[in-house]
Design a protein around this nucleic acid. Structure first.
Lengths: 199, 199
DNA sequence: GTCTATAGCCTGATAGAC
DNA sequence: GTCTATCAGGCTATAGAC
């Protein structure tokens, strides 16, 4: 199947570049700075072209969210297969790059219905994958999942990692060491680099 | 001391109403919607008056943050004196009204230096008060604070409560019950309505 | 302290040529 | 698919009357 309706230039290259440009601006300067003119300039096209690919700016924002979500989900699925999934969850959610953009969308979601719906959908898929991975890990380590419900454990890890990343982004680190150490002591099988030490 | 330099009309009434109007708009529609025109209209004054009280819109945002912070700190100090402080922390940070606005400022902080600095300052004062309260509570209940570092405990409570409130704001509740139950089981002296049952 | 009026710029979005 | 050109309106911020 070469093409059902192939594009003219080079696939959806321009469209993709617009999404990437918008992503970067939203990350660096906030959603309010992602105007059609600024996005177009960063993608090296003219302003009106944005409206050829996206009916409104909100549609562009939605596609930025979707593209980012899919990429994150793929990365998540990949990295949870190797090593200690709990530690992987911790590290991924500690990455400031992810949390900053995610915050921007959370702010947007509070007053744009469509963004909120998409974010909800994404959050639920993420939680599914994460708790499945934690379930397998706990089972493999012989932990009683009645006492340690996987979904609760994965929320604990991811949400606390995110909180600390958010705080770090504004320069707050007060209490971070204590919390991390507390978690490491309470859930030793969670944050150790490798499950049993076999690699 | 009747007045060092008393204002003309009725104290800082207009100024305060501008801050309140801005607060409400930021909460309901996001910081991008809090323009000088919209704020002025909601406060029932003309647009130019905003610039009489605040040199730039960013200065207004900063004052909105400061006013909100002071109010929250006062509320925090009051409510931590009564009953079970841990439960109080949980409830306060579960209130969507607080977290939504707080998110808006976190998004702003990522690209406006002055907001970031203020937020950092506020976050540290909050953490101080919260861990002091938790310290007293743990001591009163005879808990070993070497095993349960107060600052870690207070972060655990507040940040998880906030995360869940944020998710609830977009309609996500997946895993919330499990996490809450897990915390209640692991930290029973934290979330019970009253410490020993003496009231 | 509050107003009117305005400068100057940026915005989302559309029409229509190529 | 990409462009030029444009409309109508919103924005921050200032000047100056009352």
């Amino acid at each position: 199947m070469p093409a059902t309706q192939r594009a003219k230039t080079s696939d959806g290259a321009t469209r993709r570049r617009l999404i990437e440009a918008a992503t970067q601006i939203m990350h660096d300067e906030g959603y309010a700075a992602a105007t059609s003119r600024r996005v177009a300039a960063k993608a090296d096209v003219k302003q009106a072209l944005v409206y050829y690919y996206f009916p409104t700016m909100d549609d562009l924002f939605l596609e930025v969210l979707r593209a980012g979500s899919e990429a994150s989900l793929a990365r998540l699925r990949d990295s949870l297969q190797e090593d200690n999934p709990a530690r992987t969850l911790w590290l991924i959610n500690s990455d400031t790059r992810n949390t900053v953009l995610s915050n921007e969308f959370m702010a947007l979601a509070n007053h744009r219905k469509a963004i909120g719906a998409e974010l909800k959908h994404y959050a639920e898929r993420v939680r599914d994958i994460e708790s499945a991975a934690v379930t397998m890990m706990l089972r493999a380590q012989g932990v009683d999942i009645t006492q340690y419900p996987p979904v609760a454990i994965s929320m604990l890890i991811t949400q606390l990692a995110r909180s600390m990343a958010n705080e770090r982004a504004v320069g707050v680190s007060y209490g971070h060491e204590e919390l991390q150490r507390f978690l490491e002591e309470r859930l030793p099988w969670l944050l150790s680099p490798s499950p049993g030490g076999h690699t």
